[in-house]
């Protein structure tokens, strides 16, 4: 197993987060230098196996969840079903993970992702001690993306 350059991973994640949330949900995203406190309203998880193996956990408060879904659907939160909301958030994570991996390696790299899923508890993904946690701000609200990476064996 080869250690991933943490700086490169951070830069790739910043670019992917800004691009994905900006283009899909029209949200301006900034990196935060320090950890931010927020009440987690939603957690989503995806694994990848190529060009590196790893896991990504997206955690955000209720207000960002609502802003993402309303902006993408261009409609009020109340008019959407639970399935529509979950599908929207999972698609966002799917694209975020794909963009991150291409930023980390190269644009033309083949990317292999699992199907993303909604988490009801962190117990569902086992060990979370090896995650690096990166904090961002989306128009005044903090959220985090946690990453655990290792080179493909």
């Amino acid at each position: 197993m080869v250690e991933i350059n943490e700086h490169k991973a951070r830069q790739a994640l910043i670019k992917a987060s800004k691009d994905t949330l900006g283009e899909m949900a029209f949200l301006d995203v900034m990196e935060l230098e320090e950890a931010a406190d927020f009440k987690v309203g939603q957690q989503l998880f995806i694994e990848f196996s190529h060009p590196i193996r790893g896991r990504m956990l997206l955690s955000f408060p209720l207000e960002i969840k609502q802003a993402i879904v309303e902006n993408i659907h261009a409609t009020d939160w109340e008019s959407l079903s639970f399935d529509e909301i979950d599908d929207c958030l999972l698609e966002l994570l799917n694209i975020l993970a794909g963009n991150f991996l291409r930023e980390l390696h190269e644009e033309s790299v083949k990317v292999q992702l699992s199907f993303p899923r909604v988490l009801f508890s962190l117990d569902e993904i086992g060990d979370i001690e090896n995650f690096y946690v990166y904090y961002f701000d989306a128009e005044g609200s903090p959220f985090s993306v946690s990453l655990s990476l290792k080179e493909e064996e």
Partner: peptide, 21 residues
């Protein structure tokens, strides 16, 4: 969200118009 050069070549052989990421 999963394209690659190799895949693009394979798909071009299948007369695909293009791949949008």
């Amino acid at each position: 969200s999963m394209g690659s050069d190799a895949m693009e070549k394979e798909l071009t052989n299948s007369k695909v118009l293009g791949i949008i990421r």
